[in-house]
């Protein structure tokens, strides 16, 4: 089954790679190669160390029960920051062109992050309540209930 799932992915890669040479009158695959390899170097040299450090910090600070949810929330927040921070910083703004970055992106970024963490909190609470309800009652729970009656 897993091998079967590879097929559409490989087909897309082949299609995309062929497009490098077939869609332009004068193919220039070199800029693509720079971007493709550069992105990998950037991920390994910058993103990976940041993720490792974040992982260590979360493991130290957050209890095992909530660690998964916090990590998930951080993954989403990291991606949101990667997209939103350059806009909030106003990279690319030009005084002669009002159509570039017309919104308040600091506010947008804060709003998006807030909604992400509200979502993470909801998922965490709902899943832990459901786990508690679905878990077969342990003997000690019975004993506890019996003694409080």
């Amino acid at each position: 089954m897993r091998r079967l799932l590879f097929l559409p992915g490989v087909a897309l890669i082949v299609w995309g790679f062929a497009g490098l040479f077939t869609t332009a009158r004068h193919p220039r695959p070199l800029p693509w190669l720079t971007f493709f390899l550069g992105a990998n170097v950037l991920t390994d040299a910058v993103v990976a160390p940041v993720v490792v450090v974040a992982g260590v910090v979360v493991a130290r600070l957050v209890g095992a029960r909530w660690r998964g949810y916090v990590t998930g929330g951080l993954i989403i927040s990291g991606v949101v920051l990667l997209v939103g921070l350059p806009m909030a910083r106003g990279y690319g703004l030009r005084s002669d062109n009002p159509s570039i970055l017309p919104l308040d992106y600091t506010r947008g970024l804060a709003l998006t992050l807030a909604l992400v963490w509200v979502g993470v909190a909801l998922v965490a609470v709902v899943s832990s309540v459901r786990e508690r309800l679905l878990r077969p009652p342990r003997r000690s729970d019975h004993a506890l209930k019996a003694s409080t009656k």
């Binding site: 660690r67 998964g68 949810y69 990590t71 998930g72 899943s127 786990e131």
Partner: peptide, 13 residues
């Protein structure tokens, strides 16, 4: 994001 194991993020998570 089911964390039954309680040991961080699972593969599914």
């Amino acid at each position: 994001m089911s964390e039954a194991a309680g040991r961080g993020l699972s593969r599914r998570g």
